[in-house]
Design a binder for these strands. Structure first.
Lengths: 237, 237, 237, 237
DNA sequence: GATGAATGAGACTTCATTCAT
DNA sequence: GATGAATGAAGTCTCATTCAT
């Protein structure tokens, strides 16, 4: 005589209609105008794929992997349930592809950053700006959040994320810190913990999802403060 | 194919095996020796409750809320599945009670800290030590992680956590920072972002769950480095 | 806009109520009166199991493995769908257990027959009788039919059937034929093809399922004729 | 995210690969050289139909009706899934047409046999030979097997099979037996059970699908033994 | 005619919750 | 209080069938 699984499953609004999958998003570079009929079909397919990924991101972000129903993803993407399976083997693959698709483009950007040999003060400002504009204020924030919240149950994704994204970020940070330390801009020990540099960003992402409504957080200001803190420590050395 | 439903339920075998719910855990202050038979019964009940909570923590931590089966919780607690419902209304309540039970004791400790009027250098060491010993190296780390990973789907818990725990921590931190700033120990802007102080701790918790296997992290060292960073920034002011 | 999968799926009557799972059937030797409450529970469980097996046999026989819905099996067994999974891992296992449960008891009987050293004329009569009474006129006929119709998609069952049942039957037949041939009761070549002895039985089972309505078949008479044929051939030798 | 649905469907690529529907198979008498363009088109259509039927036979044989996916049939026939529906109303019709197409040509052959007035010894040899060469060693064996395994769920096919094939075979056998009995070649009772004559053939077909791998069976030898048995019985009369 | 992307009904299976014992 | 068998709602995935191109 079970009635409903979890009370939290209530109040889930049926998605009746959604905005047409927004034009140029980050899921795919840019589809040049399709020339032939075959290309048109392929383009249509990619469009669908993107629509699914976009819908999936929203649902997964809102409810988490397990609680998300493919029915809802389909409704949000304005397609039939079965269509999802034309593009993704199963729910798990959809999730993984989502993470992959959203994070892959980041890698290039990051790599570039590590290479630039400019004063930390300048670079830090740039980093903060990129983080806020390219991650925090976009859907990528949700992907990072998903990574944090679901990563444990998807070791493969965690590995992918570590290998393809995080290790690069960490590597870039370390390179930056090493040069900064050499110039006396930061304490040498910091080189061992690039995570410290990233920490406020992650905390901001977590905070925004859980506590924003109780106490808003000015991310940019926080990160600037943090940067200032790091830079201020140099004098000591 | 005898239909004997007649046999009365006399000699019902006791639960095959009952794990002695581990001695002094953090779920309950201390059960003073039960005096009367009634107390004994009550104590037994509390023991059960604790066993369930402990088992639940392990399962929830390992799989997340949705993916956790009460079957497994019951098995781990060495009780029957139905018994869980004698102590908790439903799965969601169990989860909430778990968070509550584990985090409540923390509050007192934190409040105390905010009050102590000692140099930040001393206090910071103490805080790091408490965090590592009382959170990071205990199951409370898992609770914090659960808070992070599941909080979004349990606004009530997020609220409880914010109200009962986080706001106190933040408040204490702010008080500490205010005094430290007054003494010129830290830049004044830091008072607005106590989150920065906590960030490395959270990052460590997340890191430990996702990437430890790829790249281990020395939490204590990282936090000391962070503290040093914060303290080093004072000179500037 | 798919409408329905297969036209043949129509006209499937909903099983609203079924006769109480018949008393002493072949699925289980005999449940001696349950003594304790625990025994009662166990007995109840076996009863359920049998009810499921019985219902499954009927559904599988009527529609084949794939076309059978566990929903219907459950309805026929007067239990909830989920209950099936308390007794059988999945649909396939249910099917296999069904075959196993029904055929296993046969083995003993067969072994006994091969041992008896009596004139073929006598033995053959006995065999025919056993086949008709123990197989053809019982649900075991359906099991044999299922073996024939589904065996190809269940190599494991085919193997089980061959190893546990068929090879014994064939072996017994061969032993019987060998002795009969030695006595000059049958041509020696027959020893190489015990299948010939069994063939009319199988054909009868197939016939009964497919063509009975067009042209009834008197199994017993056919088998007697066949036996007579085999015995008549002896004179030649 | 280009939305170019504008491109017209001009140069649609032809099917990647088109298997030359095996030359002279049994599905169709003989396609006389197509004379006009219209005939060519029709011939092309028949070719397609045959390719589908051939593919269907293989898939149905391997997996049974329900478990066969039209996707697989299409892939095997090297056509698009939708094309199947240009030639057959639905899956069930495809199945029925398949049986029909394969069995119809047999009928003539059988009728002829019943008419020949030769000694049973001669005729029987001929029958065995025809069975082995025309059925057992061809795909028709699979059709007969399908008839046996799926017939129950397709009463219409069973009826067709009985009416168009089986009754003719039975009739022919009966005629043969009647004449043979009149000549004293077989016991008179056999006339009532022509099934006995066919039984070893069916058993061989079943055996080949299920147990061949455990114990091979020499069909021709078995059938010869069986014929010898039947003929040997005459002396008695 | 041919294609194959899209659809959506349907079936298996899981598991939170209940309740007779 | 405790048990664990039973329930049935719900979700994932499949695949026959349709239809725009």
């Amino acid at each position: 005589m079970a009635k409903s699984r979890t009370a939290s499953a209530q109040g889930r609004a049926k998605v009746t209609a959604m905005a047409k999958p927004r034009g140029g998003n980050a899921l795919r570079p840019l589809a040049t105008k399709a020339a032939s009929a075959q290309d048109a079909r392929k383009a249509r397919g990619l469009e669908r794929r993107d629509a699914i990924l976009t819908a999936a991101l929203e649902e997964f972000s809102a409810r988490g992997f397990e609680a998300t129903r493919l029915d809802d993803v389909a409704a949000r993407a304005r397609i039939a349930k079965g269509t999802i399976y034309l593009y993704f083997r199963d729910k798990e693959t959809l999730f993984q592809e989502l993470i992959r698709a959203m994070l892959t483009p980041l890698v290039g950007t990051i790599e570039a950053l590590g290479a630039a040999d400019v004063p930390l003060a300048v670079l830090a400002d740039r980093l903060v700006d990129i983080f806020v504009r390219e991650v925090y204020e976009t859907r990528r924030k949700d992907v990072v959040r998903l990574m944090i919240t679901e990563g444990r149950r998807f070791p493969k994704i965690a590995e992918f994320y570590y290998r393809e994204v995080l290790s690069h970020i960490i590597g870039a940070m370390r390179a930056i810190l090493r040069r900064a330390a050499a110039r006396g801009e930061v304490p040498a020990e910091l080189v061992d913990f690039p995570q410290i540099l990233v920490a406020p960003g992650l905390v901001a992402i977590i905070w925004s999802g859980l506590f924003e409504r109780f106490e808003p957080l000015d991310v940019r200001a926080m990160m600037k403060t943090h940067v200032a803190l790091v830079l201020a420590a140099r004098k000591k050395a």
